[in-house]
Lab assay of single mutants.
Amino acid sequence: DVEEQIRRLEEVLKKNQPVTWNGTTYTDPNEIKKVIEELRKSM
Rank of each mutant, 00 (worst) to 15 (best):
Ser42Trp: 11
Glu3Met: 14
Lys33Leu: 14
Pro18His: 13
Ser42Arg: 05
Trp21Gln: 02
Ser42Thr: 14
Arg7Ser: 09
Tyr26Phe: 09
Leu39Ala: 02
Gly23Glu: 05
Ser42His: 14
Arg40Ser: 05
Lys41His: 14
Gln5Ser: 12
Met43Ala: 09
Thr24His: 15
Arg40Val: 07
Arg7Val: 05
Leu9His: 00
Gln5Tyr: 09
Glu31His: 03
Ile32Arg: 00
Lys15Cys: 09
Pro29Asn: 05
Lys14Val: 10
Ile36Arg: 00
Lys34Arg: 09
Leu39Gln: 01
Ile36Pro: 00
Leu13Gly: 02
Glu38Pro: 00
Lys15His: 14
Pro29Phe: 07
Val19Lys: 01
Lys41Ser: 13
Asn16Gln: 09
Asn16Ala: 09
Lys15Phe: 13
Gly23Leu: 02
Thr25Glu: 11
Val19Met: 10
Asn16Gly: 15
Glu11Pro: 00
Met43Ser: 06
Val35Thr: 03
Asp1Asn: 13
Lys15Gly: 11
Thr27Gln: 07
Pro29Tyr: 08
Thr20Trp: 12
Gln17Ala: 11
Met43Asp: 05
Ile36His: 00
Pro29Asp: 04
Asn22Glu: 12
Arg40Tyr: 13
Asp28Met: 03
Lys14Gln: 14
Val35Leu: 15
Leu13Tyr: 07
Lys15Ile: 09
Gln5Cys: 06
Glu10Asn: 04
Pro18Met: 11
Gln5Leu: 14
Glu38Cys: 15
Asp1Thr: 13
Val2Gln: 07
Lys41Ala: 15
Ile6Gln: 00
Val12Glu: 15
Thr20Ser: 11
Glu31Gly: 03
Val12Leu: 15
Arg40Trp: 08
Thr27Ile: 10
Val19Thr: 06
Thr20Phe: 14
Glu38Asp: 12
Lys15Arg: 11
Glu11Cys: 05
Val35Phe: 09
Lys14Thr: 11
Ile32Gln: 00
Glu3Cys: 04
Thr27Ala: 07
Pro29Ile: 07
Pro18Val: 11
Val35Met: 11
Val12Arg: 13
Ile6Asn: 01
Asp1Ser: 13
Arg8Phe: 15
Arg8Pro: 01
Thr25Trp: 11
Pro29Gln: 08
Thr27Lys: 07
Lys41Phe: 10
Asn22Asp: 10
Val2Ile: 15
Met43Tyr: 08
Gln5Lys: 04
Asn30Phe: 12
Gly23Tyr: 02
Leu13Ala: 06
Ile32Leu: 07
Ile36Cys: 01
Met43Ile: 15
Ile6Gly: 00
Leu9Met: 09
Arg40Cys: 03
Val35Cys: 05
Ser42Lys: 11
Thr27Arg: 04
Asn30Ser: 13
Val2Cys: 05
Ile6Thr: 01
Met43Arg: 02
Val12Ser: 15
Asn30Tyr: 12
Lys34Ala: 14
Gln5Thr: 14
Lys34Phe: 10
Val35Asp: 01
Tyr26Ile: 13
Arg8Lys: 14
Gln5Val: 14
Lys15Tyr: 13
Thr25Ser: 05
Met43His: 09
Thr27Tyr: 13
Glu38Gln: 11
Asn16Ser: 09
Val35Ser: 01
Met43Leu: 15
Lys33Arg: 14
Ile36Gln: 01
Lys15Thr: 15
Pro29Thr: 08
Gly23Trp: 01
Glu38Leu: 10
Glu3Tyr: 12
Asn22Phe: 10
Arg7Asp: 05
Glu10Ala: 03
Lys34Gln: 11
Asn30Glu: 15
Glu3Thr: 07
Lys33Ala: 12
Asp28Glu: 08
Glu4Ala: 09
Gln17Thr: 10
Arg7Leu: 12
Gln5Trp: 13
Asn22Ile: 03
Glu38Phe: 10
Gln17Asp: 08
Met43Pro: 06
Gly23Thr: 02
Glu31Trp: 03
Glu11Ala: 10
Tyr26Lys: 01
Thr24Arg: 08
Thr20Val: 15
Val2Leu: 14
Leu13Asn: 02
Thr24Gly: 04
Glu37Asp: 14
Ile32Ala: 04
Val12Asp: 13
Thr20Glu: 15
Asp28Cys: 04
Val2Tyr: 09
Thr27Ser: 10
Asp1Arg: 05
Lys41Asp: 09
Gly23Val: 01
Leu13Glu: 01
Asn16Arg: 06
Thr24Ala: 08
Glu37Ala: 11
Glu11Leu: 08
Lys41Gln: 14
Glu37Pro: 00
Tyr26Ala: 01
Leu39Ser: 00
Pro29Ser: 08
Lys34Thr: 08
Val19Ala: 10
Arg7Thr: 06
Val19Tyr: 11
Glu37Tyr: 04
Val19Arg: 00
Gln17Asn: 06
Arg7His: 10
Gln17Gly: 11
Thr24Lys: 14
Asn16Phe: 14
Asp1Cys: 11
Lys34Asn: 09
Glu11Ser: 07
Trp21Arg: 00
Lys41Met: 12
Gln5Glu: 11
Leu39Gly: 00
Thr20Ile: 15
Val19Gly: 06
Lys34Ile: 06
Thr25Met: 11
Arg7Pro: 01
Ser42Tyr: 13
Trp21Pro: 02
Glu10Val: 05
Leu13Gln: 03
Asp28Gly: 04
Asp1Tyr: 12
Thr27His: 10
Tyr26Trp: 04
Ile36Trp: 03
Leu9Trp: 04
Lys33Gln: 13
Glu10Gln: 05
Leu9Asp: 01
Lys34Val: 08
Lys14Met: 14
Thr20Arg: 09
Thr20Gly: 03
Leu13Asp: 01
Glu4Leu: 06
Glu3Phe: 13
Gly23Arg: 00
Thr25Tyr: 14
Glu4Phe: 07
Glu10Thr: 07
Val19His: 05
Ile32Thr: 02
Ile6Val: 04
Thr24Phe: 12
Lys15Leu: 15
Gly23Cys: 03
Leu39Met: 05
Gln17Cys: 08
Glu3Ser: 07
Thr20Leu: 13
Glu4Met: 08
Lys14Pro: 02
Glu11Trp: 04
Pro18Cys: 07
Pro29Val: 09
Thr24Val: 15
Lys34Asp: 05
Ser42Val: 13
Glu3Arg: 08
Thr27Asp: 12
Val35His: 03
Asn30Asp: 14
Gln5His: 10
Ile6Glu: 01
Thr25Cys: 08
Lys33Glu: 10
Arg40Gly: 03
Leu9Lys: 00
Tyr26Arg: 00
Thr27Met: 07
Ile32Phe: 06
Val12His: 15
Trp21Tyr: 12
Asp1Leu: 12
Lys14Arg: 14
Glu31Asn: 04
